[in-house]
Amino acid sequence: MSGTHFLRHGWRRALPAVAIVAVCLGATACTPDTTRARVEADVPRTFANSYALSEQLQGHSATRPDVTSTECHSSVNPTQDSGPGSWACDLTYTVDGKQEKTELLVLIDQLGCYQALGEKRDATITDQATGAVLPDPKQGFDGCYDVYDGRTSVSKK
């Protein structure tokens, strides 16, 4: 089959395949990438890592907090906790035997990544290794989550 023949007549044969792809797209388009379950799974883990990183960069022992509860809600979606935009996350954690709370503003993009900002988002630390003054990782950190995992719950309480 020549190229021009294919271009003239081949598209008719490709129509069923295109239709199948369109149906599949329509069927799966309702599953959002950003769900409450994904946010609540990733934010506390990355917060704990960033807390430990902050301590390490300052030359302290790598104290890793134990996050005991997390509650995140979308600030832009009134019907369900899903989709990119601004989210609010309340975390309760224990560090050195003391219980603490923090509220994070989580700015989530369309690509499954976010920037989390603490209450003292302008706080800085000094990196003991380089002497550079850096934004405190536990007051502002980035993270990404797997948009193909099974955490699809979007319930809004």
Binding site: L25, T28, T31, D33, P84, Q110, V147
Partner: peptide, 11 residues
Amino acid sequence: MFLNAWDTVRH
């Protein structure tokens, strides 16, 4: 990619 549109199309 930057629109809040169908995620499946983005993928």
